[in-house]
């Protein structure tokens, strides 16, 4: 890292690799994304707003943001406990549990979707016991929250684990020897230290939830105005060949996720960690 690279390097291949990088990036990513921007621009101000801001679409935004937010909160809470348990305690099968945390990354979302539906549907593994209690999970916003919690969990755990590992145990000891009890130590010493990581994990989980599609559509029931998430609405518009509508809604979502991405980058910068981050 310490080599000063102010001088011209003798390594070959810059032109070739840089040229290929820019070409491939343009063909696969930039030009297709440009198509969205172009199409969006061609709608005109009124056309755009009519498509992106009407009752059915707004209902989907509200639902998507609400369920994403709640699931990210659930993940922040339980993810912290899971990460803490995995870092600080010894338990049998820990490395197995640790590996399974990444399951939501590895499992195709459609598979997650039907698995969660099998478990939480009215006649499902758990659903049949919840139903008599008056709790309906599948085909309600609660089902969407369950699916988004599943999808978002690894983001929180994987962001928190290194942060908890890096806590300086001596600070905890210092707090203790100054008379703090465990709860005070956690609240005043540990939590402030890992707060940036916790917020980053929360934001990553929230961002992922906003755009999620596969794991949600099977469990949500997809009723317009009630359980129709924005991603699904985009597909519905496409199936009706309403390209303008799909584009306008997609642009809104894309802007939202870019804003979030920017916030996450700020958080990660605050976190001081350069290279770690959930996949």
């Amino acid at each position: 890292m310490s080599t000063s690279r102010t001088t011209r390097t003798i390594l070959p291949g810059f032109g070739l690799t840089m040229g290929y990088t820019v070409l491939y990036l343009s063909l696969v990513v930039l030009i297709p994304l440009g198509a969205l921007v172009l199409k969006s621009g061609s709608l005109g101000w009124h056309g755009f707003w009519a498509a992106a801001w009407n009752p059915r679409v707004i209902a989907s935004y509200e639902l998507t943001f609400f369920t994403s937010f709640v699931s990210a909160l659930i993940n922040a809470f339980f993810g912290l406990i899971v990460a803490w348990t995995l870092v600080r305690y010894t338990l049998p099968g820990k490395s197995f549990i640790d590996a399974v945390i990444d399951l939501p990354f590895a499992l195709p979302t459609a598979v997650s979707g039907i698995a969660l539906t099998a478990v939480y549907a009215q006649n499902g593994w758990f659903g049949r016991y919840l139903e008599p209690l008056g709790i309906r999970v599948a085909f309600t916003p609660l089902g969407i929250i369950v699916a988004l919690t599943f999808i978002g969990l690894p983001f929180v755990v994987r962001t928190l684990q290194p942060a908890i590992e890096e806590i300086d145990r001596e600070t905890e000891e210092a707090a203790a020897s100054l008379g703090a009890n465990r709860w005070q130590t956690f609240w005043r010493v540990i939590l402030p230290t890992i707060l940036p990581a916790l917020l980053t994990g929360f934001a990553l989980s929230f961002a992922r939830a906003l755009g999620e599609y596969g794991s949600v559509v099977f469990i949500s029931g997809n009723m317009p105005m009630k359980t129709e998430i924005t991603s699904l609405l985009i597909i519905t518009k496409l199936e009706q060949y309403d390209y303008a509508g799909a584009t306008a809604i997609a642009t809104m979502m894309l802007v939202a996720s870019f804003v979030l991405l920017f916030a996450i980058n700020l958080l990660q910068w605050w976190n001081g960690r350069k290279f770690r981050g959930a996949v």
Partner: peptide, 13 residues
């Protein structure tokens, strides 16, 4: 940063 559905949509457009 681009959600799956939008990733498909851009190619349709």
């Amino acid at each position: 940063a681009v959600s799956p559905v939008i990733s498909g949509l851009i190619f349709v457009l």
